[in-house]
Simulated scan of single mutants.
Amino acid sequence: MIETTRTVSTLRSWVKTCRQSGKRIALVPTMGALHEGHLTLVDLARRHADEVAVSLFVNPTQFAPGEDLDRYPRDEQGDRAKLDARGVSMLWAPTPDEMYPDGFSTTVSLDGPALGLETDHRPHFFGGVATVVTKLLLQVLPDVAVFGEKDYQQLQVISRLTRDLDIPTQIIGGSTIREPDGLAMSSRNAYLSKEERQVAPVLNITLKAAGRAALAGDDPRTTETKAISQLLAAGFARIDYVAIRHAESLAPLTSADIKAGQPMRVLGAGVLGKTRLIDNLDPRSA
């Protein structure tokens, strides 16, 4: 039976009990509104640990004014039932006051893979993510933590953060889980109208085509521009980026880099109706 806690002190008591029993702990951080993509991360975590904790926290510091903090989907009761069925031991569901008590004034600053892409359009985002993830990792001190590859830049930022700060947690990326038509599963997909839902898979289709073109020798910057035009023509209201990047550093790749076999990722983000969608893929395996 899953246990739920909302305070750091009771969470650490659970961690201490696990450690005294010699058990490995895995953490899966989430913002709730769980779908099958989240649950596959839980399954992956269970393969790497004896006990799995899932955090459920809609982190206010990664939302800018005017973003969807207030309307972000929430269903703690339903989430708890799904996690219980998946064999999760602990649901860590703190309140904002528990995570950010009066006087909280410490943040984590970033460089490297945090620069550009999401940061160009949501400059607040990774500072909020890095701070809350650092807190979660120090609260649970898990042996492993599992994050989805759908948020690929975030995964690279967190991997770098744990290495740079000597946080002794192995970061594992879980593959993106997709709907039958290729749309990456996301809690925000619930915002899409019926008509927008029909258009949404074009993001994945376009990123695949851009990857194939770059692998065939087309100039990456020209390919990115063409992909953006295609997405706008398909009905997206705004495209924040289509980017062909090095898979680890997220630095831009040239045609020569791609020909030389540098690891590659194609990433995209755009707004369809009022919903912001992101996706990414490795074109060599897509």
Rank of each mutant, 00 (worst) to 15 (best):
D97F: 10
S109W: 09
Y72W: 04
H35L: 03
Y152M: 14
F57N: 02
L141Y: 07
E51F: 13
A85Q: 13
L41K: 04
R86E: 14
D79I: 14
T134S: 10
D84V: 00
H121I: 08
T107P: 00
D143Y: 10
G127H: 10
V133P: 01
G78K: 15
L83V: 07
L138Y: 13
L56R: 09
E149P: 10
W92E: 03
G116S: 03
G116C: 01
D102I: 10
L69P: 05
G127V: 08
V88P: 07
G128D: 02
E67F: 03
T40R: 11
T119Y: 01
Y100K: 11
A49M: 11
T106I: 09
D68P: 07
L115Q: 14
L91N: 04
S105H: 13
H124P: 09
D143M: 07
V42H: 12
K82I: 05
V58N: 02
S55C: 03
N59G: 13
D120A: 12
P65F: 00
H121C: 11
T119D: 14
V88S: 06
G37K: 09
D120V: 04
D79T: 09
E36H: 08
L56A: 01
F125E: 05
R46I: 08
F126Y: 06
F63Y: 03
F147G: 06
S55E: 05
G103C: 02
E76I: 15
G127E: 13
S105F: 06
F57Q: 00
Y72L: 09
L117V: 05
L41D: 02
A145N: 07
R46Y: 05
V129H: 01
M99C: 04
G128C: 01
L39G: 00
G87H: 07
S109G: 07
S89N: 07
L137N: 07
G116M: 01
L41F: 06
V144R: 10
A130S: 15
D68G: 11
L137Q: 03
T106A: 12
L91H: 07
M90N: 00
G127P: 00
P96Q: 09
Q154E: 14
D43A: 14
Q77M: 10
T131Q: 05
A130W: 08
Y72N: 05
W92V: 08
F57Y: 11
T40E: 13
D68K: 09
V88I: 04
V54E: 07
F57T: 00
L91T: 05
D79A: 12
E67C: 01
A64T: 04
D70Y: 00
P96M: 05
F126V: 05
T95G: 02
L155S: 06
P113I: 09
T95S: 15
L115N: 12
R71D: 12
D97M: 13
L141V: 14
F126D: 02
V129I: 11
L56C: 04
L69E: 02
V144I: 15
D75R: 03
P142K: 14
P142G: 12
S105Q: 13
R47S: 13
Q153G: 15
V42G: 07
M90V: 13
A130M: 09
K150D: 11
Y100Q: 10
L83I: 03
A64P: 04
G78C: 12
G128T: 05
E51S: 13
G66V: 00
T119S: 15
G116E: 01
V42Q: 04
A114F: 07
V132Y: 07
D70E: 14
Q153C: 14
T106D: 14
S89R: 11
D151R: 13
A145D: 08
D120H: 06
